[in-house]
Every structure is written in C-alpha cells, then in structure tokens.
C-alpha cells in the first residue's frame, strides 16, 4: 500500500465557551505510515488526547472539529457521521485508553466483550467469533486463553487487563491504533512489557500507531517518529533519534533536560520556568515565548510555523551559535 495510513492536515478542534472559543488543537498536521509508531508528547492540556479523540470522533461535546482534514487509508473521515463513522471505529481505527481498570465493562465476561466487537465488524458466526477472540487473547499473551475467555475483568491484574484492552482494540484488525497514555496507569515493571507487546503486534501486522504519552522514556523505547505538542500546536516533528538526540525547539530541549536520568547522578533536575499558558489566555506570537530562554522580539509578535514535514516551529531553532544566545 502506498501513502500514509493516517494523514492529518491543519486539524483544529474548538470548544465554544462563555469566554470565547478555545482551540485545544490548533492547526496540526502529520502523517503516520504503515507499521509506523508516531509518539505524541507534551504536557497535560497540550492537546495530545484531543487530537486522538478527534480522529476517532469521540470528542465530548461541545468540543468539535472546526477545521482541517483527517484521512485514513486515503478516505477522508472528518466529515463522516453516525453509522458510517461507527463502522470505522474498531474496524479501521482502534483505541487503547489510559486506565485498564476502568476501560473494561465490569459486568460482562471478557469473551463476550471480544465477540461482540468482532461480530460488530466481521461477517462471522458466533462460534467463529469466539475462536477469534481466543486467538486475540493468546496473541496478547494471556495464558490459558481458552478458559480465561469466561473470566470477568476483576479477575485479571492491571497489566493483564491492559493486554485484554489491547486485544479488544486489535480484534477487528484496524490499520491504525490510537494509544492514549497506555502505560501511565500501570506499574513501572509492567509498562515495558505492554510497550513491547504493542510494538511487536503492530510491527507484525503493519498497524500504524499514534502513541500519546508524556513519558519521554516510552517515546524513546517505542516510537519511530515523535511530535511534540505545546498549547495545541506542533512544536517539533521528526525522527525520534533526531528530536530526542538533538532537539531543535527550545521547548523540546527543555523537556529533554527535565527528564530524570540515572546517569546524571544527584545533580538538580532542570525545570522549564513557568507553566503552559491557559487556552483562554494565550500570549501573542509564539505560545512558548514567555518561558523561552532564547526569545527575541519577533517571538512576541509573530507565530513561527512548522515547515512541511519535519522540523521545529521556531524562529531560532537550536543549536545556537554563541552570539544569538
């Protein structure tokens, strides 16, 4: 297949409020190719999850897509409604939520939750769907899938439940998975397992993954490319090696500097001064300028744009020569 699985162009999400219109996602564009894992990082409220919810059309009203285009497998989906959109969910776009303890219905057996999802999308008999459900559980590493299919969610541990959630998201073989903080609610020891599992399954099937997280370690571990979001905009986009190894946007640089590393010893952890501005109180020009150590007068009046493709949305991208800094 040629072309990206997911292509987002100038996506804007708006929330009308009494104090005016907020834009939690403001004109972002990126592609995710077949078998590629795109990490989306940023602070809470940067618009990471909003963008994911917009793709699968699960924005909570009054938030809505106000502009831009979303293409999945060459089909434009941002204008689809009702049943047409429902058919895509699960079938073309799967989603994994943050907290496996709350994403499974406590009153239904996991087998029933799997088969109902399979039957909603594939023309199979109930028995075939059950076989497929067992296979799906087996693939995510649930031991004794044939018996466990009759278990209820509370009979699994947190890590096992997230495996079940992944099985549910993948059981109708979508070409795109949106994983919204899939490891945040898990024990550190389980996080790596889940990331490795997600990575392996998507590599084997060629599934594209939008991996939303605020954990730079997860990005470094799993993602091929990374998009850094700040106040609803893309700050930087590029291959993980480039962005994490040699950040060009001062914000990315600040984020990397604030990641605790054992190798740094007991040195004081760097902080980015200040906090991300509220959406109803964005500064003029570049939203990051009040916190940026390199800000110049142009940063306070004009909005830097991200050139098509990879790069940083910054007038003075790093590395700086001595006189600019």
């Amino acid at each position: 297949m040629t072309g990206p699985i997911l292509s987002i162009r100038n996506l804007t999400v708006e929330i009308p409020t009494r104090h005016g219109i907020l834009r939690p996602v403001d004109g972002i564009s990126y592609d995710i190719g077949r078998g590629e894992i795109l990490g989306i990082v940023g602070e809470s409220g940067a618009g990471k999850s909003m963008a994911g919810n917009a793709v699968i059309d699960l924005l909570s009203p009054p938030a809505h897509i106000a502009g831009g285009e979303i293409w999945v497998n060459g089909t434009r989906i941002d204008q689809l409604k009702g049943d047409a959109m429902r058919r895509l969910r699960g079938k073309e776009i799967g989603m994994v939520f943050q907290d496996p303890l709350t994403s499974l219905n406590p009153l239904l057996r996991i087998g029933d939750q799997l088969t109902e999802t399979i039957l909603a999308h594939l023309p199979l008999s109930r028995a075939q769907a059950k076989d497929r459900a067992i296979k799906a559980l087996d693939e995510v590493g649930i031991p004794g899938a044939t018996e466990r299919i009759n278990s209820y969610p509370h009979e699994f541990s947190g890590g096992m439940r997230q495996r079940v959630v992944i099985a549910l998201a993948l059981c109708a073989e979508p070409s795109l998975i949106i994983a919204d903080e899939p490891t945040t609610a898990l024990d550190v020891s389980v996080q790596a397992q889940i990331i490795a599992l997600l990575k392996a399954l998507c590599r084997n099937r060629g599934t594209a993954v939008m991996l939303i997280t605020h954990d730079m370690g997860v990005i470094a571990e799993a993602a091929d490319r990374v998009a850094v979001m700040y106040a609803g905009k893309l700050a930087e986009l590029g291959a993980v090696r480039d962005v994490l190894g040699a950040p060009r946007h001062p914000y990315t640089d600040g984020l990397m500097g604030s990641t605790p590393l054992a190798s740094r010893g007991k040195a004081r952890l760097h902080q980015i001064p200040g906090a991300m501005p509220a959406l109803d109180n964005l500064p003029q020009g570049c939203a990051f300028h009040p916190r940026c150590p390199y800000a110049q007068s142009i940063c306070k009046t004009q909005m830097p744009t991200l050139a098509d493709g990879d790069g940083a949305a910054c007038f003075f991208p790093l590395p700086h020569t001595a006189e600019v800094a």
């Binding site: 699960g90 079938k91 989603m95 939520f97 999308h121």
Partner: peptide
Amino acid sequence: RFARARGL
C-alpha cells in the same frame, strides 16, 4: 467510551 471506540 471504550465500547463506542470499538464501533459497537
């Protein structure tokens, strides 16, 4: 939300 996200 997860049930909706699975296209039920």
